[in-house]
Amino acid sequence: MNAAALLLEIKGLRAGYGEVDVLHGIDLEIRDGEFVCIIGANTAGKSTILRAISRLVPRASGTLRFAGADLSTRASHEVPALGIAHVPEGRHVFPDMSVEDNLMLGAFTARSASDLPERMQRIFELFPRLRERRSQLAGTLSGGEQQMVAVGRALMLNPKLLLLDEPSHGLAPKVVEEMHDAFVKIHSGGTSILLVEQNVGLALDVATRGYVLETGRITLQGSSAELSQNPAVRAAYLGI
């Protein structure tokens, strides 16, 4: 694993909204091809890390490097073109557009449009239900299907790194499982993933490595196996 190149490098990241710091110096790394999760309670700052990577947090300091590029000098709309696709929390689809149009908009910053139909086919293979509903308005889909659209839209970018913010939030258990199966497939296809998840058991199931975040600081890190054996993690998050 250590042989793989460093994809994302975060050092001493402090970030917040207004006067308040949410993150108090985060160090985090993702190597090419890794599937990493961030776990922790609500308000620990998990989403803020993703939003800082996507440059959506108004104020951030520290080192943020992605594939050799300095992210901290980029504006949020420039981030997707670097190869980072963000699936924000809360199923943000374009409700009055068809599933297909939603997916096409995901490739908004793609330089060449020649292989877009091919990319869409791959997404339909991953989520067959979206193929059935390709011309339906995204706003009329079920919650799980909308989340599939949001993930599919991010994949249209052919990202090097996929940021997933609470993708299972508010979904039926069966759909959550489908979702996580899809993430494993996406990862085995070569896409690196950073997953933020409050369902700790599931997160440690699919990810290979994890960070535990508590009130803006990383308190623990290790392989998923190590973390799921850790007594503190078991007590605090797995309820065992």
Partner: peptide, 10 residues
């Protein structure tokens, strides 16, 4: 339709 989604697609 969705400002947050518009931002994350670039």
């Amino acid at each position: 339709e969705n400002q947050a989604a518009a931002e994350v697609i670039g």
